[in-house]
Structure formats: C-alpha cells, structure tokens
Design a binder for these strands. Sequence first.
DNA 1: CTCTAAATGCGAATGATTTGCGTTTCATAT
DNA 2: ATATGAAACGCAAATCATTCGCATTTAGAG
Lengths: 140, 140
Amino acid sequence: MTGERILAQANLKCTEKRLAMLDYLARSHHPVTAEEVAQHIGAAAHVSTVYRFLGTLVEKEMLLREIHQDGIAYYQLPQSRHCHMLTCRNCRRSVNLPHCPLTGLQQQLERQTGYHITGHLLEFTGVCPTCAKKEKTEKI
Amino acid sequence: MTGERILAQANLKCTEKRLAMLDYLARSHHPVTAEEVAQHIGAAAHVSTVYRFLGTLVEKEMLLREIHQDGIAYYQLPQSRHCHMLTCRNCRRSVNLPHCPLTGLQQQLERQTGYHITGHLLEFTGVCPTCAKKEKTEKI
DNA sequence: CTCTAAATGCGAATGATTTGCGTTTCATAT
DNA sequence: ATATGAAACGCAAATCATTCGCATTTAGAG
C-alpha cells in the first residue's frame, strides 16, 4: 500500500517526512527502531516527530510495535507475512524465521480463552556460531 | 530449592535481604518486576541493590529475565515448566498458556541456523472478554 | 578476632521515550 | 489564489526504569 493511501486511511496530513518514514518502513523487511527511521530518511526529522508519528499509527492499529529483549521498541508495517527474530545475545546479529509458526496456535487459543487476540511477540535469544566460536577460544 | 542453596550454588554471600528476595521470587508464581521485589520483602532493600542482585542471578543463568510489552523487566525463577502469557491490553489481566508450544520448533531452528538458542520470549496481546464487552457498550 | 572481598545505600548518570509549547505547514473554504 | 484553523514539527525539558561510581558496612574465611 502506498504512503499517501496509508495516511489518507489514517486521516492524517500528508507531509514529506511522513511519506519518507512510511517509505522506509515499507522498504525494511524486518522490524526497525525509531532511531533507525529518523536516521535513514532523506528528509531529516526530529526524533520526537518520528516517535509521535509512529505512535499515532500504532494507536490506529496501522503499525506494529514490539518491545524486544534489548528493551527497545521495534516497528513494522503489518504485512501478510510478518516474521520473528533470533538474536545473538552477544553481538546482537539476528536472523529471521522464514514464517510465523503461531497462526494456528493463536486461533486455538482464542477459542480456549475467549480473548480476542490482536498480536503476539515471539523472540528467540541465543549465541550465533561466530560468537560461540569466540567464546570457546577465550575460555582456553 | 531453598534460598541458602541457591546462593551457595551461585557462589554468593548469604544475606538477609537476598534470602528475602529469593523467598519472594519463589513464592510468586508469575514473573515479577524489580520494583515489586523491592516493595514486598520485609527487610527493606534499596532498588539498586535489588537490580544488582537480580542481574547477578540472571548472569549466572539462575534467574530468568524477560522484558514485556510494557517495556519493564520481569523476573522469575526457572521452574521445570515455564509458561507464557496472554495479556489484555486494556486491563492487563492475563492468562497463562498451559504449556510452552515452542520446544520442538526451537530444536529445529537450532539445526537450521547454527545458533545455540538459550531462551525465547512469547507473549500474546489481546482483549479479554470483559473488556471486549465494555468497549462494545461504550461505542453505542 | 581480623581482615579482605563482597554487598549495600545513596545519588547521580544514562538512554529511550514522552511532553509542553511556540512556530511552521497543510489543506479546506472562501 | 488567499486566508485560516487545525495539525505537524522542532526543540528542550521531563520522565521513568535501569545502571554506575563511590563511600560505608558486613559476611565469612583464616
């Protein structure tokens, strides 16, 4: 969906900065931080502007926000296929799971609990092969 | 496991405050915040002391820390069966999943990525039946 | 009992995020 | 095209959980 369309649907004014932010979000195929958004858009925007805009979209349920285990909020446009991450606790490098393994479970859970489930967070933590090798070397 | 035993195994000195903290953790059958620990122990301890002690235990992998979607760290002693939560975004009331559905997936993921996976976080967000009813009423 | 390393308290520092407010810009009606 | 009110923006100060530095106290080995 194009940035103009998203803004119209959200009933928000169309500005250069907002289009740039949406463009960056659409381009990123993984969750990104507000800081990253602020840095990677051509039209420089103040961090507070970025936070405010992203927050507004989240309120309108047109953007997903998840707080990862590093304590930082990551944002992503809701795509047909969202993904989850496996992050190295040492170097923070992460790989994505190819697809979300929870869709079926979520439906089952809704039936069992009566909750209307609006989202979920799944994050794996571990040690990547490179760091595992390093740690082994250092211990000798 | 008793508090004395945990401290001995962690190679940490045995103090009144630490025993109180461990006691509280053992008594809580759900993840708790550092703030809660500080408030609910008889022997008053400074927050920084609580944070330091909990942090030390986490480092030694004798305590689990997970950052929830409210951005706050929750701690729990590792039990034979850990669980995950489904939290109402409105009233914060939560129900537990009966068991962790990720064990198999995690092993498969280790094979595929070469990462050594040390933990995971799974958290569902939704609206509980009570709040759903309320929201519907308010909209009329 | 003595002595040292570890534990504690306190306050200041940190870092992501939010907020208040004055200024600028969008977009709608004239 | 222009005026105008509302929304967006920039900036700096506030917030809040968490961490850190340092001086003081205490556990527990010898």
